[in-house]
């Protein structure tokens, strides 16, 4: 699957350019953090990479993927996950069954991941009545259960309390350690520092830098990144 190559990727809606000519090469291995202010285009970029949106121009190339089956090797946790109107367990089993797993295989796997994200005791509860934070864990469990090569995480801890954030960060690291490529967004600098190996900094639809984590925080190249790090988001 990897590396993932983006060639002059652009996405426009009407007259609004949301992603502007992004080129990058994302390698297997390092945890990639897409960083940038609200509205920079992080979520759109991720949905483009995941194949949910069609680029207006430019190309997305997954190494060695045959046409159309790229998404089978990927999974994504959305910024606002959509829970199906069924139990937490059934939500996790849904994707597994679509992937051709038997009912019993799906259930075993689903219970395993629910256990890991700390939702085993809520397995039979309706997913939509779970709290925001619980739904976010469930979304992570549902994506991870698919055993993807690449896992996209769009603000995976946005609704979580500090203890839960810690839990989820540990799980993300475990997933990384198991060999799954992590590509995530956040606008939490602390989280970027804790989880990131490399940073893609996006501002206003443009890729401003693509650097290893240390260099990004010590000597950012762009003024946008520098002021973002200092906490001064430029007024636009």
């Amino acid at each position: 699957m990897l590396p993932l190559e983006l060639h002059e990727l652009s996405f426009t809606v009407g007259n609004a350019a949301i992603i502007r000519g992004i080129s990058a090469r994302i390698e297997a291995g390092p945890r990639t953090v897409i960083l940038g202010p609200n509205g920079a285009g992080k979520s759109v970029l991720m949905r483009l990479c995941h194949g949910l949106l069609k680029p207006s121009s430019g190309r997305i190339v997954w190494q060695g993927a045959k046409n159309g089956d790229e998404r089978k090797h990927q999974a994504m946790v959305f910024q606002r996950p959509v829970m199906l109107r069924r139990s937490a367990l059934a939500n996790v089993m849904y994707g597994l069954k679509l992937a051709g797993k038997s009912r019993s295989q799906s259930e075993l796997r689903a219970m395993d991941v629910l256990e890991v994200v700390g939702l085993a005791q809520h397995a039979e509860r309706a997913a939509r009545v779970l709290s925001g934070g619980e739904q976010q864990r469930l979304a992570l469990a549902r994506a991870w259960a698919l055993g993807p090569d690449v896992l996209f995480l769009d603000e995976p801890t946005a609704n979580l309390d500090p203890a839960s954030t810690q839990d989820i960060e540990n799980i993300i690291n475990a997933i990384h350690a198991s060999g799954t490529k992590i590509i995530m967004t956040t606008h939490n600098l602390g989280q970027a520092r804790r989880l990131g190996d490399e940073i893609l900094f996006i501002s206003n639809g443009r890729l401003m830098e693509h650097t290893p984590i240390d260099r990004f925080f010590k000597q950012p190249v762009s003024t946008e990144a520098a002021s973002f790090i200092k906490g001064e988001i430029p007024w636009q």
Partner: peptide
């Protein structure tokens, strides 16, 4: 509208 991207991401085809 609400489910579209989520279902596609989980691997659902049109009929599913």
């Amino acid at each position: 509208r609400e489910y579209d991207e989520q279902l596609r991401s989980l691997g659902a085809q049109r009929l599913n």
